[in-house]
Design a protein around this nucleic acid. Structure first.
Lengths: 148, 148
DNA sequence: ATAACTGCAAAAGTTTTGCTACCAA
DNA sequence: TTGGTAGCAAAACTTTTGCAGTTAT
């Protein structure tokens, strides 16, 4: 179960996505409504095919190309994040949640989100020492459950 | 310029790779010799096509498929690492260097290696608190040069 | 009205694989 | 000798794109 997703209803997440899409200057078509609804109803991190399948339960007519095109537009406008885990097709998540990184359960494939201010600070510090400024980063912990 | 790669000569890096390949139970063919030499002579992180091109300067007969097959075998035996940066084809690096993470210069595409014991410890700690054990991780800082 | 958008099918790019021949051990 | 390995070409997969028709604003 994903706490974060449950804090806000799919309906309200959809409204947020819709608003973000419109303020990005994009048209609200019926295909995009379906895609956004599918994404709003996802508390995991679906890839393009999964998102397409979920979208089609809402509107059969939506093509995979439209899913990709919509995700690309929304990514360019900072509305969604494109996650690319090792050896997998890209996955998508709404960007309206606070910044976080990911733990990938290598046995089950589950993705857990976490946030660490300390790590963020360390990253910035390391980059600064090398003459760089962090624009964005990816941190993924590939883990297995602790046996206790 | 990459300090790490310069600490050890391409020749000696090749010998190490050759040894690792043989102890993985793989046969040392002339194609693999060429691939390993190309990799040993690379102080960056080449993708399959780049590695293939470099390999062909040594032995024209080596195919791209052999580069991929060799990398897959070596990866399975822990001899090389497959890096998959956001939106790029996979890159390869010899695994004989101490563990490190990567800074990607988003303007030039340069890749800089760094190591932080503190961050490693924090990662393990965070995972432990969530009931997980880190098997491996990926940390990439996408950065731009600091203007000073 | 018209610029943005869509589905479809084809293309592009990366990586894998089936097959037959070959070669390292 | 023989099981692993090679090249080649085709396939598999993910993602993008050209085109001609459609639609939101």
């Amino acid at each position: 179960m994903n706490d974060k997703a449950d804090l806000v209803s799919p309906k309200s997440r959809y409204e947020d996505l819709k608003k973000a899409l419109k303020s990005s200057g994009l048209k609200l078509t019926k295909q995009r409504k379906a895609v956004l609804n599918a994404l709003a109803g996802s508390d995991d991190h679906p890839d393009a095919n999964q998102l397409h399948r979920r979208t089609q339960t809402i509107d059969k007519s939506v093509s995979l190309a439209t899913v990709y095109r919509t995700m690309t537009e929304l990514e360019n406008n900072g509305v969604i994040h494109r996650l690319s885990f090792q050896g997998e097709p890209a996955r998508f998540e709404a960007a309206d949640t606070p910044h976080h990184d990911h733990i990938i359960d290598i046995d089950s494939g589950d993705v857990i989100e976490f946030q660490s201010e300390k790590i963020e600070r360390l990253q910035a510090e390391i980059a600064r020492e090398l003459g760089y400024e962090v624009v964005h980063h990816r941190l993924e912990l590939y883990c297995s459950k602790t046996v206790k």
